[in-house]
Amino acid sequence: MNERRNKLVSILLNNMPMLLFVLLLIAFGAIAPESLQYQNIENAFKQASYIGIVAIGMTFVLLTGGIDLSVGSNMYVSAVIAGLAMQRYSVGAGPALLLCLVVGAVFGTINAIAVTKLRILPFVATLAMMVSGRGVGLMFSKSRAVAFPDPVTGLGSAELFSLLPYPIVIFALVVGGAALLLHRTQLGRQIYALGYDKEVARKAGINADRVQAAAYILCGLFAALGGFVSVVQLGNVNAGFGKGDEFDAIAAAVLGGVSLFGGVGRVFPGVVLGAVFIQAISIGLVSAQVDLYLHPLITAAVIFSAVLADSLRNTYLKKLSRRNIRLEV
């Protein structure tokens, strides 16, 4: 009886992201039933796709026990460079995307070198890169907005087989790829191992530096891709593009059950739901016509409750695991 209740509670707590999501849907359904139409849900996913992609990149780094505060600046630099290439040298959309990804990967590589070779704390290294990186971006753009050409931005509203918008398709591909990488490749398993304990990982014969570097490079790559997907929808890159997105990405990952201490969390459904959740809040607030100034307050309050639920879960699970000393008959 007691045991069954414990099991139920731990199932509930372990699926917190899912639960929060359902609660949110119910709330929207009750307040504004029209927000649950297919179109709106598709919209939520579409708008969440870019932050979701960035959050998945962030997940790699968080799983190793690190953090990347520079993804927002990375998004900016890579999008600016890709945009300028298209504007000035009339590069096609494909090569521009490739260029964008290369810049993102280079950005990630610098983080990786700082963290693994120079042994600088991830928080400090990526904070510095956040500042420097944006500086580099502004140097290229002269702090003017960089517009993407029309054919590219057309993709933002185009749909694959006129069924699914491209951003969602890309998001889905990224989710599938990341899940495959994390769960079915040696690198993925080693990322989890590293996050559990770096010293133990080293003793187990894992090349810790290489795995950690891979996580930062992947994070940079996905940040650039997320930035590209976002610009395709927005049309241009203004000077503040990506600012603060690092926090949304971290929040999405943590809401999705990724631990800031490393080693715990899943891309699907966790991080996907986390990203959609954050986006859904803002869509919901817009459709409920809440004062724009109040949006950050409400979003923050919701995230706070999600983090609180997560810590309560951890405390509770710890208690549960300590309870098996005596068998009550």
């Binding site: 600088i120 510095a128 500042v131 420097s132």
Partner: peptide, 9 residues
């Protein structure tokens, strides 16, 4: 900004 970040590194 670029230099500041670099100096922190």
């Amino acid at each position: 900004d670029i230099i500041k970040g670099a100096v922190i590194l």
